[in-house]
Each structure stands twice: as structure tokens, then as C-alpha cells.
Nucleic acid binder design. Sequence first.
DNA 1: CTGAGTGCAAACGTTTTGCACTTGC
DNA 2: GCAAGTGCAAAACGTTTGCACTCAG
Lengths: 149, 149
Amino acid sequence: MNYENLLRGHGLKVTPQRLGILSLMDQQGHMNVDDLYLQIKEKFASISLATMYKNINAMMSASIITEIKIPKQKSRFEIVKESHGHLLCQECGEFMDIELDIAKMVDDVSAKSSYQLFEASLVLSGICPLCQHSSASPVSFLPVAHIHT
Amino acid sequence: MNYENLLRGHGLKVTPQRLGILSLMDQQGHMNVDDLYLQIKEKFASISLATMYKNINAMMSASIITEIKIPKQKSRFEIVKESHGHLLCQECGEFMDIELDIAKMVDDVSAKSSYQLFEASLVLSGICPLCQHSSASPVSFLPVAHIHT
DNA sequence: CTGAGTGCAAACGTTTTGCACTTGC
DNA sequence: GCAAGTGCAAAACGTTTGCACTCAG
């Protein structure tokens, strides 16, 4: 991916800080602010947290990146691409894309509700195959029985 | 809905503050902290914001309520019920449940990924039928063309 | 009666801002 | 050269905490 053209194409100037942020997001997929800041400091010691936030906000306004809000977790940021869902392992924290036929579902809801839809946010959470087998910490994930009386 | 039994059934004491919070959430469906606080103060002037937060957290730990994280919006809270999706109008802010066959989708993803899933968060955003017609503010919602070169 | 819940003020962590300096174009 | 971006410190914001008091069970 050519980050310079990505920035210029959306009216933002190319700076080393921004290139650093974008390449990290591109490599790692989805990152929260803390991880992003820690890792970018390794390569770019002088960067300030304020600059990080300013750039994240600028790139969000420019629709270069998006914020993914996740139940019980810090938001993560990713470079904008086609609509897709996310899968989270609550045990080890693995977080991945799922190509999912969201289009069909969106059409369906759109037809029923008469809404004109243009954004879909989907996060599924559970335990990944590896963590299922390493049954080290048998945390109770299933919701406690609901007593609605 | 019987809020007293709901609280007692989950090991929480019944207080007027909690009853107020629950009945507001029940009536209005989904509320963010600010609306909740403003409205509960009308009925219950002495309540403090700290108590609000303490109660929200207590009821979340007890699985009486859940937080719904929404793209570009403040989180809202709702009383726990069967898994369902949400629909948001970005124009007027209408926010509603959609009964959606999430189960099928979850099974599908589960089969492909071998994840053991137990939580699904889905928020679809768009413009509701009413706001589509009152074409008062022709905001551009569609994402700007992406220039990935 | 006792532990849980409340309300206040202070503390905390995160994000934003103002400003002087630097840089991309 | 000039607007845009950077870095610092300070401010603002939302949320949490400690503590004395009150109340539910």
C-alpha cells in the first residue's frame, strides 16, 4: 500500500509521523491508541501523544482510518477498506477480520425498516480454537441465568 | 417488568435510585449516561453522578444491563435481553432494536473459524425513512471515493 | 445491627487545546 | 513563503475513588 498517495489523495500532508502510524496499522491490522503509541515511539522517539491524537483525528475525518468500538475493550483503529466484521477472542485478545456477507443482511434490514443504510459495525466475541483447548482458565463466559420475575 | 425482583435476583439491594435508572432504561430503551443523568435528576434531584456510575457498573457486573458501543456516538445502556441488533439514524438519532437472525450468522462464523462464540454486537447506521424525505440537510453520508494507489 | 449504597469532593486517566517552532509543498 | 503539522505543557473531560453518612434487609 502506498501511504503517501493515500494521504495526499485525501488532502493531508505527508509526514514521517503519519507514515509511521499508517504502516503500523497496515502491518498489525487493528491497534488501540496505547499499542500504537508505544510501538511508534520505538521507531520515532520524538513523537508526542498529542500528535498521535491529532493525526488519528485528522485521518478519521479524512476517512483514511476508522475506529472500531468493541464491547468491554478499548477502541481499535484500522485503515478503511470494504465493509467487514470482526472476531475477538476474549481469552488471548486475538482480533481479526471476517469477510462476511454483510451486504445480504443489510439489504434485508433495509427492506424491512426502509432505512437507507451506509454503515455496519459487527463484532463477534468468543474463545478461539487454541484457547478452547488450553483450558487453563475455566472462566465462566456464559451469562448467568436471568431472573426476570 | 418487576425491577425489584430483577435487582434482588442478581444480588443487588433495591434502592430508589436503581429503580429510577431501570425504569428509565426500560421506558426509553437505550440511553447514554448524560440523558440518563439529566432525566433521573428530574425525578430524583439528590442523585449524584458518582452514584449513577456506581450503579451502572454494579448492574453491568450483575448482568442486569449491558453497554452498547456505537460508532461515532456515546455508548448507550440497555436492560439485558435476548441477542439482537441495533439500527441508528445518524440524522435524527433514532435508535432501535432489530430482531435479526444473528444465530444463523453466528453459527456460520463459528463453523468457519472454530471459535466458540457467546457475544454479538451489531449496529447498522443510516437514515430513517422520515429523514430521507425531509431532505432538509443534504449531508454527504456516502464515503468519499477511496484513493488507494 | 451490619453491610451495602449514597453523595460529596478529590483524584485519575484519557483526550484536547493553545502556542511557539518546524516542515512539507 | 505560508499554511499545515509538530511537541510541549496546560486544560478539559469523563469516570473512579475515599470517606463519612444513610438505609435496606
